[in-house]
């Protein structure tokens, strides 16, 4: 049994000619929250997006190297993208609920991954309720399940975007600056939410906010110009960084 849920070896990625990820080798542990920090444009989103292979939408992307998630090389020929993305859920920087009802948003994954008629109305109701409760959204939207999800507030939308991952029982949650569209209290609530989820999932979270990385993560990955510079427990990175660049970055000297 592998101790890491995400492992990459010498991962390189190009957008056309632009070398966006350079020899990235990381090991991400399950059950803890790993924060991915680094200055703008250093490739955080790109790295995150290679874990569910959603980068491959862009025809110009070429990838080299290995990514193993839960012990399986995701570039193996028998891997199905749909199954991979079912297990590796993603939350985007801008909340992007689908333009359908709140209810349908939550069970979208089930509609896609389960046979029609496999789940009865009552089961679906129960799943919707428990998923929304898990993200502390149930009380806000329980009377609005039929309204279009795009009408909710930004914070509610972002919570919904997390909630809709849960019914598919993902293993890994990738979060790309999940709080950047929110205000102070919203950020705090989402952070608490993420913390409450961490026991069940491997969570990898991109953030620009040093305070958030410090508050909400257990391990930190510092990236610079497409490379991993340092990977260490959060406290260590903040109190006692090994690399010069890390120190400069977390003390706000650049980036």
């Amino acid at each position: 049994m592998t101790a890491y849920s995400i492992q990459t070896r010498d991962l390189n990625l190009w957008y056309g000619k632009f070398h966006a990820l350079k020899d990235v080798t990381v090991n991400v542990k399950p059950g803890v929250i790993t924060a991915l920090i680094g200055p703008s444009g250093c490739g955080k989103t790109t790295l995150l997006r290679s874990f569910n292979r959603i980068n491959e939408r862009y025809p110009s992307v070429t990838t080299k190297g290995e990514i193993e998630i839960l012990g399986k090389n995701i570039y193996d020929s028998d891997v199905s993208l749909s199954e991979l993305r079912k297990s590796v859920g993603m939350v985007f920087q801008r909340p992007n609920p689908l333009p359908i009802s709140v209810y349908e948003n939550v069970i979208f994954g089930l509609r896609v991954h389960r046979r029609r008629g496999e789940l009865h109305r009552r089961q679906l109701d129960a799943i919707v309720e428990s998923s929304l409760r898990d993200v502390q959204l149930w009380d806000d939207v329980k009377d609005k399940l039929r309204t279009k999800a795009t009408r909710l507030t930004l914070e509610q939308q972002q919570k919904l975007c997390i909630a809709r991952l849960l019914p598919q029982k993902p293993r890994v949650l990738l979060m790309d600056e999940p709080c950047s569209a929110l205000d102070g209290e919203g950020i705090e609530r989402i952070e608490t939410l993420i913390e409450s989820l961490r026991h069940k999932y491997t969570i990898l979270m991109v953030t620009h906010n040093m305070g958030q990385a410090r508050r909400a993560s257990h391990e930190c990955l510092f990236m610079l110009l497409g490379r991993i510079v340092e990977h260490a427990p959060t406290l260590e990175i903040f109190l006692n960084p090994k690399e010069k660049e890390t120190e400069l970055y977390i003390t706000g000297r650049y980036g």
Binding site: M90, P97, V112
Partner: peptide
Amino acid sequence: DSYREAALALGASRWEIVYRVLFPA
């Protein structure tokens, strides 16, 4: 495009995106 990306990230195939997301949208 964010709708397509969202659905894709949930594991939907292109056809499912078409009829579950694009048609309603």
